[in-house]
Nucleic acid binder design. Structure first.
Length: 660
DNA sequence: CTGATTGACGTTTTT
DNA sequence: CGTCAATCAG
C-alpha cells in the first residue's frame, strides 16, 4: 500500500533509474542499495521492453519469494493496463523449475507425476534414510541430515561425490544416508525443494535439446535479489541466457543474508567477469529512510570488507528518528514496545499496521505476542510457523495426498490411525516390514498379510474398511474436481476429525482455533477450485507445497495489512515500515551465538548485513532495544550489548543509552 | 491398542 | 520452558 503511494507520488524516474530501465540488451548489473526503488525499476524495465516490441511472454522475471512475485505481477498490470494480455512471466526459481520439471523430469527416469515434499514429509524421509545406520559413535538427527543434504545440493554435490569427499564419521554417515534418501525419493516419485533446482540444472546440463527449447522461450531474463543467488541458481540462469546474454540482475551485496543456504557473494561481486560487456548501474538515491537511519546503516556496513563501494544519498531529513533503549529483561522490553505502540495508536493516530517488530530468532516473538494480546492490538506473525505447518493442516493434506496418489505410503502412515481407528503401531509396523521385504506398497502387503493370517481379523477388517473409505473419496475427487472443498468437508465429517480435535485439546478456545484452521483449509481449497482452470488435487497440492507460507487466507491477508507485524530479519527482506522496532540487540542474538562460535569474519559479516537489513527497513522511526536479562530454557541468562551498537554509534552521538 | 506420565534434549536464519 | 520420544498401566 505504501509502495503504491510512492509510485503515484514520484511518477518520474531519476537519471540512474532511467538508465537502468532503458539499458535493455546485454548483461546489466544494477547495484541497488536499500530503498532506492529497485522493484520499481524492474517493473518499469519490463514495461519498457514490451513498449519496444518484445512480446510479454518472452520476458522472464525471477523473484525471491512468491509474495514478491505476486506484487510485481500486480505492479506490471497497473503499469501496462489490465486489459493487456499476455503478461510477462514473473516467478520464483522454485516455481519456474517445478514448471520445467513437469515437462522434462521423465528424462531422469522419474514419473511425470512427481510430488514436492513438504518439510514434514522430508523429515520422515530423512528418518527412514537414517534408520539402522551408525558410523562410529556418530549420530544425526533428521533435521541435521536435511540441512547437510540441502547444502550439498545447493552446490551440486551428488550422493556419490559426497561419499568420496567424506572426511569424518559424521560426513560418512550423512553421505550414506544421502544416497539412501535420494534413492527412496526417486522410488516414490518425490522431490524436495532443492531437487527442483538441482534436477532442472541436471537436465539443462545433460540434455541439450531440452535446454535449447527453454532458451528459445525467453529473450530477456531479470533476476531480483541477485545477492542471494546460490551455485545452482547461477548455473540455471547462465544456461538460460547463454544464447543472448540479455540478463539483468538487481541486488545489493550489503543485503546478502542467505550464505547458510548456499548464497555466494561472488556471484554479484564477480558478475561483470562472468558476463563480459556488463553495464554496471548504481542506484544510490535512497527515498525510504531518514538521514539519521541511513547514517546508522552506513556506519554499520562499513565494517564489512568485501563489498561494492556505495554511497547511499538520503532524501529525507528528520531529527530524532533513531533511538536506543535498554531494559532489565525481555518481558519489560516487550511491555515497553507494545505500550508505546498502543500509545501511538491511541494518541497520535498511528495505525498498528505502520509498526513492525523485527528479531533474529523465532523464539523471540512469544513475549511480544503475549503483550500484544494483553493490549488488544491486532498483530500478525509473518514467516515462521505457518498455516501449512500446523498439525491439522498436515494431517488433512496427508489425506488429500493419499487420495491423489494411492501409492504415497509416507502420507498414508501419517493418517492411518488419525483419528484413532484401532490400527495401531504394531500392526502397521508388521505390514511395513513385509512391504519393505517384498518391495511392495502398503496396501498390497496388508492384503497379503491378512490373507496369510499374519494379522488379527479385527485389524484386517479395520484396514479394509479404511481402504474402502479412501477409495470412495478418491473416486469422488476424480468425478467432481470442481467441488473438492465439499468433498474435503465430507471427509472431515466422516472420519470425525472435529471430535478428534476436541479430544486432543482440552481448552475450548484452543479447540475453536484449531477448528478455524481446518475451516481455512477448506476455504483455501474452495478458492483454488474457483480460480484454477482445471482444478485437481495434484494441482492444489503443488500450489500448497510451493507457495506454502505466503498464501494464507484472506482473513490473514487483511490482518497482515492492518496489524502490527512481527517477523524475523530474514523475512523482512524487501519490505519497509514506517516504524521499526529492532529488538534483542545483544551479543549472542545479533550476532547470533552460532556465528560468533564460528570464529570466521564471514559469519559475523553476514550477521552485520542482517542488522543492516533490519535498520534499513525503517522509513521514519527506528527503535533499537536490548534486554539485559533474558529467559532461555527456563533459566535466566545475562547479556552484553551487541558489538553492532558500538559500530553504529561510532559516528552517531544521538544513539545514547537510555535506561528505563 | 490407548492414553497418560516421565524424562531427555535442545533452538538461526527459509524457498 | 516446551517438545517429542519412550515407557507403562489399563
Amino acid at each position: 500500500m505504501a509502495k503504491a503511494c510512492d509510485m503515484d507520488r514520484q511518477n518520474q524516474l531519476n537519471a540512474a533509474q532511467r538508465e537502468a530501465v532503458e539499458t535493455l540488451s546485454g548483461p546489466v548489473l544494477i547495484l541497488a542499495g536499500a530503498g532506492t526503488g529497485k522493484t520499481r525499476v524492474i517493473t518499469h524495465r519490463m514495461a519498457e521492453l514490451i513498449r519496444r516490441g518484445t512480446p510479454p511472454e518472452r520476458i522472464l522475471s525471477v523473484t525471491f519469494t512468491n509474495k514478491a512475485a505476486r506484487e510485481m505481477r500486480e505492479r506490471a498490470v497497473r503499469l501496462l493496463g489490465a486489459g493487456r494480455k499476455p503478461h510477462p512471466h514473473v516467478s520464483t526459481f522454485h516455481s519456474l523449475c517445478s514448471h520445467i520439471l513437469r515437462q522434462e523430469i521423465w528424462r531422469l527416469g522419474y514419473p511425470a507425476e512427481f510430488v514436492i515434499l513438504d518439510r514434514g514429509d522430508q523429515e520422515s524421509q530423512a528418518r527412514t534414510a537414517l534408520r539402522d545406520i551408525r558410523v562410529a559413535e556418530e549420530k544425526l538427527r533428521p533435521a541435521d541430515l536435511i540441512n547437510i543434504i540441502s547444502r550439498w545440493k545447493m552446490v551440486g554435490v551428488e550422493p556419490e561425490a559426497a561419499a568420496e569427499a567424506a572426511q569424518n564419521p559424521r560426513d560418512v554417515l550423512a553421505a550414506t544416508a544421502y544416497r539412501r534418501y535420494q534413492k527412496n525419493m526417486k522410488a516414490s516419485a518425490s522431490v524436495d525443494f532443492d531437487d527442483l533446482l538441482l534436477l532442472t540444472s541436471r537436465i539443462f546440463e545433460n540434455f541439450p535439446e531440452a535446454l535449447s527449447r527453454w532458451q528459445a522461450r525467453f529473450d530477456h531474463v531479470q533476476i531480483d535479489e541477485y545477492q542471494d543467488t546460490n551455485g545452482i541458481q547461477f548455473d540455471l540462469v547462465e544456461a538460460l541466457v547463454r544464447p543472448h546474454h540479455n540478463l539483468c540482475v538487481v541486488g545489493d551485496d550489503d543485503q546478502s543474508i542467505y550464505g547458510w543456504r548456499g548464497a555466494d557473494l561472488r556471484h554479484i561481486l564477480g558478475f561483470a567477469e562472468a558476463f563480459p560487456g556488463t553495464r554496471v548501474i548504481r542506484l544510490q538515491d535512497n527515498y525510504r529512510c531518514t538521514d539519521q537511519i541511513l547514517q546508522l546503516a552506513n556506519n554499520l556496513v562499513r565494517h564489512n570488507k568485501s563489498r561494492h563501494e556505495k554511497h547511499l544519498i538520503p532524501h529525507k531529513f528528520a531529527s530524532q528518528s533513531v533511538r536506543y533503549l535498554e531494559f532489565p529483561d525481555d518481558i519489560k522490553e516487550a511491555e515497553h514496545v507494545v505500550r508505546e505502540i498502543q500509545y501511538l495508536v491511541n494518541e497520535q493516530q498511528v495505525l498498528p499496521g505502520d509498526a513492525a517488530i523485527l528479531f533474529r530468532t523465532n523464539e523471540q516473538p512469544r513475549v511480544f505476542e503475549t503483550q500484544l494480546r494483553k493490549a488488544r492490538l491486532p498483530y500478525v506473525v509473518l514467516g515462521s510457523m505457518s498455516f501449512f505447518d500446523r498439525r491439522e493442516i498436515r494431517d488433512l493434506l496427508a489425506y488429500l495426498k493419499v487420495l491423489w496418489r494411492p501409492e504415497d505410503d509416507i502420507s498414508l502412515l501419517r493418517i492411518i490411525n488419525v483419528p484413532a481407528r484401532g490400527i495401531g503401531a504394531t500392526t502397521t509396523e508388521k505390514i511395513m516390514a513385509r512391504a519393505v521385504l517384498n518391495r511392495q506398497k502398503f496396501w498390497d502387503a496388508s492384503a497379503e498379510a491378512a490373507a496369510a493370517g499374519a494379522i488379527p481379523k479385527k485389524m484386517a477388517d479395520a484396514l479394509v474398511a479404511f481402504q474402502q473409505l479412501l477409495n470412495r473419496f478418491r473416486a469422488d475427487c476424480r468425478e467432481h474436481p470442481q467441488r473438492l472443498d465439499e468433498i474435503l468437508s465430507r471427509l472431515i465429517e466422516e472420519i470425525g476429525y472435529e471430535a478428534e480435535i476436541e479430544k486432543q485439546y482440552k481448552e475450548p478456545p484452543e479447540q475453536l482455533m484449531r477448528m478455524a484452521v481446518v475451516e481455512d483449509l477448506v476455504k483455501t481449497l474452495k478458492d483454488y477450485c474457483a480460480q484454477a482452470a482445471e482444478p485437481s488435487l495434484g494441482g492444489f497440492l503443488e500450489e500448497a507445497a510451493l507457495t506454502g507460507k505466503d498464501e494464507q487466507g484472506d482473513k490473514d491477508d487483511k490482518l497482515a495489512e492492518t496489524g502490527v507485524k512481527l517477523m524475523t530479519l530474514h523475512s523482512a527482506k524487501g519490505l519497509e515500515f514506517s516504524r521499526v522496532y529492532l529488538v534483542g540487540m545483544e551479543e549472542g542474538l545479533l550476532p547470533h551465538k552460532r556465528s560468533i562460535d564460528d570464529m570466521t569474519t564471514a559469519a559475523i559479516d553476514e550477521e552485520r548485513r542482517l542488522a543492516y537489513v533490519g535498520v534499513t527497513r525503517a522509513k521514519d522511526y527506528l527503535t533499537i532495544t536490548r534486554a539485559a536479562r533474558r529467559m532461555k530454557w527456563g533459566r535466566t541468562i545475562f547479556t552484553q550489548p551487541s558489538r553492532f551498537l558500538n559500530e553504529m554509534r561510532a559516528a552517531h552521538p544521538t544513539l545514547e543509552t537510555k535506561d528505563e
